[in-house]
Simulated scan of single mutants.
Amino acid sequence: MGTAIGVAGALGAAALASGALTVLVARAVIVPPSRRTEDVRILRVDLDRGLIVLSATPDSLLPGTYSFWFDQDAGEARLGEIVARDERTVTRRVLSVEFGDLDAASSGRFNGWVYLTPDDLGVAYEDVAIATPLGDAPAWLVPADPARASKRWMIGVHGRAVKRSEVLRAVPVFRDAGYDSLIVSYRNDGEAPRSADYRYALGDREWIDVEEAMRYALDHGAEELVLMGWSMGGATVLQALTRSLYREHVIGVVLESPVVDWIATLDFQVTLRRLPAVVRYLVLAMFRSRWGGILTGLAEPLDLDRMDFVRRARELHTPILLLHSDDDGFVPSTASRALAVARPDIVTFVPFEVARHTKLWNYDPERWEGAIRDWLAALDAPRGTHSNLA
């Protein structure tokens, strides 16, 4: 009897532990973070020589140009080429310190934003407000090169836990191609109004704010739209493409490191963190059910099946440019590749390696911009020119 009670107690404790872990994982996905993890140690700074020595991590070892945030985002520097490296450290060029005291910082994090505002691009722009159901959401409107201006607009949608600055890297190539660029914010991103539950809906509700941006563009002279989404912004764009009243005006979609299927992404994260398989099942159940909202804080269940565009591939009819790194490290490229295989007639897939999540431009800006430039040119070509490049 005592053994049976002990076994039952152990099983009960394990169930409670799994349940608690599940809630933590679920909330980590949908609750906007109040602090960002600084996972790179600063070992030495020599601003006179323009050098910084950092601990070796997958991000700090990436070739290219990056933003480096430190002191819990109270400071930001721009780091360039790798000068030296060994098993434990990497030395990089410090291109500039935009604000903050880098000398006094002990850790930081890498970010793909090299441009913080359109001022950094050196082009004219306007601060505008998009009227959403929750209130006005700020956006940047960057007009096209006057010599190439058209009636086409790009609407740029950033990813989870970041802000619209993420999208500015795309503005120059669209501007040169004759597109006005509308760089938007959306609910719960720290700039746009909060929803009542203050939870990410993984694209299942954020698309409503993107739809209002689409309406704004059409009301201000746009006739054709290209939607561009990064990471969770890719999931949001796909929802807008298939659910918006204005979807007929969308002539193309660009997806950078996108979430094409949330279940595949959550599976990847569970495996990466070596979590019990039951956690994956319970997290999905929480997101899909009304009872799960008691624990997660979600006001409404999430329709994860509606966000699986591998399964829904036949419902897509718009040309798509899909850029993804096989070394993404956060959102696996498997679903992107599967979508490209399922719809080679409309999907142009450009694979990267090494670049990691949403850092493709930073790693190889010439290839990244060239892929978008060629794809935009193909929008004017006869149908059938879009093909799978994987």
Rank of each mutant, 00 (worst) to 15 (best):
residue 301 P to W: 00
residue 259 V to H: 08
residue 124 A to Q: 14
residue 252 G to C: 04
residue 179 Y to K: 13
residue 376 L to D: 03
residue 378 A to S: 15
residue 92 R to C: 00
residue 141 L to A: 09
residue 121 L to H: 08
residue 63 P to S: 00
residue 143 P to E: 08
residue 303 D to P: 01
residue 271 T to Y: 11
residue 28 A to I: 05
residue 282 L to V: 10
residue 128 V to L: 02
residue 46 D to Y: 00
residue 365 P to C: 05
residue 355 A to E: 04
residue 190 G to Q: 06
residue 131 A to S: 15
residue 365 P to V: 07
residue 309 F to L: 07
residue 193 P to H: 07
residue 269 Q to E: 07
residue 31 V to Y: 12
residue 25 V to R: 04
residue 248 E to D: 15
residue 341 V to C: 14
residue 209 D to T: 09
residue 33 P to S: 12
residue 307 M to N: 15
residue 327 D to M: 00
residue 49 R to V: 04
residue 174 F to T: 11
residue 248 E to W: 13
residue 385 T to C: 12
residue 323 L to H: 09
residue 144 A to I: 11
residue 332 P to E: 06
residue 358 T to M: 12
residue 254 V to Q: 13
residue 27 R to Y: 07
residue 299 A to D: 13
residue 279 V to A: 00
residue 298 L to E: 05
residue 236 T to I: 07
residue 286 M to W: 02
residue 359 K to F: 09
residue 351 P to C: 02
residue 85 R to T: 13
residue 345 D to N: 06
residue 273 R to Y: 02
residue 336 S to P: 10
residue 79 L to P: 08
residue 9 G to T: 13
residue 229 G to W: 04
residue 208 I to P: 07
residue 88 R to I: 06
residue 203 G to K: 02
residue 262 W to M: 03
residue 149 A to H: 14
residue 178 G to N: 12
residue 328 D to L: 06
residue 97 V to D: 03
residue 181 S to P: 08
residue 328 D to I: 01
residue 281 Y to N: 13
residue 326 D to W: 15
residue 293 G to A: 03
residue 207 W to L: 12
residue 349 F to A: 14
residue 322 L to I: 05
residue 204 D to V: 02
residue 223 E to P: 04
residue 281 Y to V: 14
residue 272 L to C: 05
residue 134 L to K: 07
residue 77 A to T: 01
residue 286 M to R: 03
residue 179 Y to L: 14
residue 22 T to I: 02
residue 7 V to L: 15
residue 76 E to G: 09
residue 152 R to K: 14
residue 160 R to H: 11
residue 39 D to L: 02
residue 73 D to T: 05
residue 62 L to I: 02
residue 76 E to H: 15
residue 167 V to F: 14
residue 99 F to C: 00
residue 260 V to K: 08
residue 243 R to S: 12
residue 4 A to V: 11
residue 250 V to M: 09
residue 345 D to I: 03
residue 303 D to C: 09
residue 61 L to S: 12
residue 128 V to H: 05
residue 115 Y to A: 15
residue 127 D to I: 03
residue 362 N to T: 01
residue 234 G to E: 06
residue 236 T to C: 07
residue 105 A to Q: 04
residue 151 K to D: 15
residue 30 I to K: 06
residue 139 A to V: 05
residue 173 V to M: 11
residue 27 R to V: 05
residue 248 E to Q: 15
residue 250 V to F: 09
residue 263 I to W: 10
residue 255 L to I: 09
residue 130 I to T: 10
residue 361 W to L: 11
residue 343 R to M: 07
